[in-house]
């Protein structure tokens, strides 16, 4: 610049301070305040955190490895809770199942599978739905019409039916030798693909509102690439509702996985999830061995309920009209 206009007036340049640290910001936020004042949410947070922690640490903290045949004693089968196996020194907090596996340990390993499938499926649905929703809402026109009609068609079927259909088709396409190892990914794909439409619809609506706003116009005047406008400007402003659906969607995905596994089309028996455990348990319910069903079912309810309550709180906390 030949004639720097800044020289005409003397301004002592001061560098603006850096924003406060992330932890400080989080503790000062309205969200944290609303969390601290909701006892139900605090309980739900700790329940969910405990369940997730236990699931993550299962290989290190579980009393037995239920998938190691060496430690299993078939004769311990159907040991009631809080008692010692009849033919071994193993002590069973929640009893043993028909193969003599410790129910407590299988639940730990089972929630690991349930949570993994649920989280990955939700992440997949979220990425796909948010991406398509942004494209749909920002571009409008034909792209919007095509994406939204597909979403409409899909929403007119129950998610579980879609997942069953996708699961069946995917299974047919995979060679039998790989079916066992691929099963969990096929399941994630099926559940994820059956849930993207909610995300897409919400994000599309919010995007259509945001793209009309002048801050988007200001970025367009500067010639910022549309992809960057979507990513930097619009995405942060539509993320609130996405987080809410994502949290509630996680609970739904866990239940959906349990349903599929209960129906016998989910994860392979070598990697039982909570749903698989419940399916096994219900076979023995009427012969009096209630604990094989009861404890996995309670765990599933606790997990889904606490995550759901978190989602409810998030929805209220992010909605300024309810404050």
């Amino acid at each position: 610049m030949t004639n720097d206009p800044m020289t005409t007036r003397q301004i002592e340049p001061v560098i603006p301070p850096r924003p406060p640290g992330l932890l400080r910001q989080a503790l000062d936020s309205d969200m944290f305040y609303s969390w601290r004042n909701s006892p139900v949410t605090i309980v739900a947070t700790f329940t969910a955190a405990a369940l997730i922690l236990v699931a993550l640490l299962a290989p290190w903290i579980a009393p037995y490895n239920p998938f190691n045949p060496a430690t299993l004693n078939l004769m311990d089968g159907f040991t009631p809770p809080m008692s010692e196996g009849a033919f071994s020194d193993n002590w069973f907090l929640m009893g043993a199942d028909h193969q003599g596996r410790d129910v407590f340990s299988t639940i730990m390993y089972g929630s690991r599978v349930s949570l993994f499938v649920g989280a990955m499926a939700t992440l997949f649905a979220m990425t796909l739905g948010v991406g398509l929703g942004l494209a749909s809402g920002y571009n409008g026109g034909t792209i919007d019409a095509v994406i939204m009609r597909i979403a409409d068609i899909q929403l007119s079927f129950p998610a579980i039916l879609i997942a069953l259909l996708i699961f069946g088709v995917a299974r047919g396409l995979i060679p039998p030798s790989q079916q066992e190892s691929m099963a969990i990914w096929v399941l994630i794909f099926a559940i994820g693909l059956s849930n993207w439409a909610q995300f897409a619809r919400t994000v599309r609506g919010a995007t259509m509102v945001e793209r009309q706003k002048d801050y988007v116009a200001a970025a367009r005047i500067m010639g910022v690439h549309p992809a960057l406008i979507l990513l930097r400007h619009i995405l942060p402003n539509v993320l609130g509702p996405v987080l809410v659906i994502g949290t509630i969607g996680l609970a739904l995905a866990i239940i959906e996985e349990a349903t599929l596994s209960f129906l016998g089309v989910g994860v392979p028996p070598t990697q039982p999830s909570l749903g698989t455990l419940i399916r096994i348990g219900q076979q023995y319910l009427f012969s009096g061995e209630w604990w094989i069903l009861f404890f996995p079912a309670v765990t599933l309810v606790l997990l889904a309920l606490s995550v759901n309550l978190l989602g409810d709180w998030l929805r209220d906390a992010l909605n300024p009209k309810l404050r």
């Binding site: 002592e12 340049p13 001061v14 560098i15 603006p16």
Partner: peptide
Amino acid sequence: LLRVGELLALVGLSAEDGV
């Protein structure tokens, strides 16, 4: 950032307002 501080001063705001 230096330029941002300069601009804030130019329009009658303070650099601390940047955060």
